[in-house]
Design a binder for these strands. Sequence first.
DNA 1: TAACCTATGTGACGGGTTTCACATGACTCG
DNA 2: CGAGTCATGTGAAACCCGTCACATAGGTTA
Lengths: 218, 218
Amino acid sequence: MERKRISESTIHRLSLYLRTLAELDADGQATVSSKELADREKLTPAQVRKDLSFFGSFGTRGLGYPVIELKDKIARILGVNRTWNVAVIGVGNIGSALVSYKEFARQGFRIVKIFDNDQRKIGSNHKGIQVSDFKDFADEAPEAGVEIAIIAVPGPIAQYVVDDVVRAGIKAILNFAPVNLRVPADVYLRNENMSMELEYLSFAMVNNHVQKKTRRTV
Amino acid sequence: MERKRISESTIHRLSLYLRTLAELDADGQATVSSKELADREKLTPAQVRKDLSFFGSFGTRGLGYPVIELKDKIARILGVNRTWNVAVIGVGNIGSALVSYKEFARQGFRIVKIFDNDQRKIGSNHKGIQVSDFKDFADEAPEAGVEIAIIAVPGPIAQYVVDDVVRAGIKAILNFAPVNLRVPADVYLRNENMSMELEYLSFAMVNNHVQKKTRRTV
DNA sequence: TAACCTATGTGACGGGTTTCACATGACTCG
DNA sequence: CGAGTCATGTGAAACCCGTCACATAGGTTA
Ligand SMILES: NC(=O)c1ccc[n+]([C@@H]2O[C@H](COP(=O)([O-])OP(=O)(O)OC[C@H]3O[C@@H](n4cnc5c(N)ncnc54)[C@H](O)[C@@H]3O)[C@@H](O)[C@H]2O)c1
Ligand SMILES: NC(=O)c1ccc[n+]([C@@H]2O[C@H](COP(=O)([O-])OP(=O)(O)OC[C@H]3O[C@@H](n4cnc5c(N)ncnc54)[C@H](O)[C@@H]3O)[C@@H](O)[C@H]2O)c1
């Protein structure tokens, strides 16, 4: 199934294409050229074509790509032509926001469990989901078919939480805590770091930094 | 002031170094080697040294880098050796979470204004800040010295909001809406895209993708 | 003060990713 | 049905970024 090593940048751009294709589809547009796709994402047409070419030939020469078909292809490549069960751990400021975000479900990520260790929160209802005690994670997460864990607990606690999550057999983790988490090699870990983007803005302003190609952004 | 074109990756890594240096400083460690820094960030020592070398020679051969000094240097490079005034626009789920996040202030980003257009929210108090009517942005933001705007409004509205923000003279924007915003060339725009990271996890799982070097990730 | 040790700083190298350029193939129109 | 148009798909080139390897310099010790 794997032909070449696909770069992280390419995968990120596929996410962008997917979003734009969904918009084009909603607008009723039937086909799209690499140029149009590129313009929307501030990329080059060649980049778009090269990215897609890693996975096959989806277009028609002289015409472009069929919007719906390409959207489905990319969804399949990214693995979002299905639903992933997600658990949110820590239902504080950011955890609550994530739980309330209906868009995730539409994109294939369904939050099925919420965990916390605060007695005042355990048992309470968030968007129709009862908050569970994190102590019971190892029992309840597998039972609910959780495949992805989102870590939204305070930084100093995150490593302990992650250790438990890994022990429960979870292989994919999205971390919001501003710490470097250690996980085994077979566990996928991604970090969401808002300070990094703010600091990038700061750097750009201080240095009158020239904006180049927008890479792994948006 | 600018010697070379500095890559986005390098800037992102500086953010990582800064965070780790703050930890080391808190632990009372006086010096740190490129190797130790690299181990903590899952990078190579050469990468660390190269990144720093773009900006000068901060270390001592045979010894390493002085933690406090290097921290200050990087803070200065990133422009966070000062405070930036930030406005949050849209105090819904994610906006509220950001406003409640005290860590930003510690990192040099002080939220001084909150805007919304919901009458029920305007005038209410969030963490000591009165929510303003977004209609008054052009007046109130410059008055409060706002330099960075965080967009946390629904996607379909984001472009209109951003147009107003740009018109008010703001040059740096962090966008949470899942849309591609158009801004003039002299405005710095960064996007925060959580779906992208979830989709990356999804792709990795579906393809048993081998985890390589953690690049522009936390 | 001299010898040794250690980790920096950096030119050279190599690999990977993006851009270029064009041959190719599909559709359209006359 | 044939000529023309257009945008794809892809090798090759260019470029960028990370890694390597080592000369170098500061610290330390005797
Ligand atoms: N709020 C933001 O905008 C923001 C931005 C960037 C990063 N973050 C990071 O996200 C994380 C959460 O931030 P927040 O503002 O939501 O904090 P918060 O304090 O509001 O929420 C943390 C939640 O985690 C729960 N918790 C604590 N220990 C736990 C445990 N052992 N098991 C399960 N749950 C536990 C707490 O009860 C609380 O509900 C932090 O690491 C923070 O640095 C937050
Ligand atoms: N909640 C999340 O976890 C999450 C995750 C990723 C992305 N996002 C994105 O962040 C944005 C906000 O999401 P949310 O969940 O906080 O939505 P929300 O509906 O809770 O909040 C949006 C806020 O914007 C305000 N608003 C609407 N129009 C406005 C205008 N013209 N001027 C000023 N304020 C206006 C609304 O009154 C509301 O308070 C959306 O674009 C969403 O897609 C949210």
